[in-house]
């Protein structure tokens, strides 16, 4: 796992990363039924994963985040980020590839 932008946050980042990664692996493969059933199952599943994350990684995430937020301010990077955020690249996503694209 790579370094944090601030040396002081690196231990927190590593702990957070490894917690997140093991949660993420399960998150990427939701229960099979969820794919076929309707929106309700999807939302219930999402809710469950969010609770799981909170229980396992919530605390270390908040510690790491507050460390990085402070480091960004100290380095004056917060304004640079603010500007980039306003342009919001994900609002206008790239269209899906034209080739056959089966999700089900």
């Amino acid at each position: 796992m790579s370094q944090s932008l601030s040396e002081e946050c690196t231990p927190l980042k590593k702990e957070y990363d490894s917690c997140f990664n093991s949660w993420f692996e399960g998150y990427l493969e939701p229960a099979v039924e969820a794919g076929r059933a309707g929106q309700r199952t999807r939302e219930a599943n999402a809710q469950k994963k969010a609770e799981e994350f909170e229980a396992k990684c919530g605390k270390i995430w908040r510690q790491y985040k507050s460390c990085v937020t402070k480091a960004l301010k100290d380095k004056g990077l917060d304004t640079l980020l603010e500007q980039a955020r306003q342009e919001n690249p994900l609002v206008d996503p790239i269209p899906p590839p034209t080739s056959s694209n089966s999700n089900n």
């Binding site: 370094q3 944090s4 957070y16 999402a46 969010a50 994350f53 790491y64 985040k65 990085v68 960004l72």
Partner: peptide, 9 residues
Amino acid sequence: SCDVISREQ
């Protein structure tokens, strides 16, 4: 370096 600045579900 690589940091997560924000992340939400």
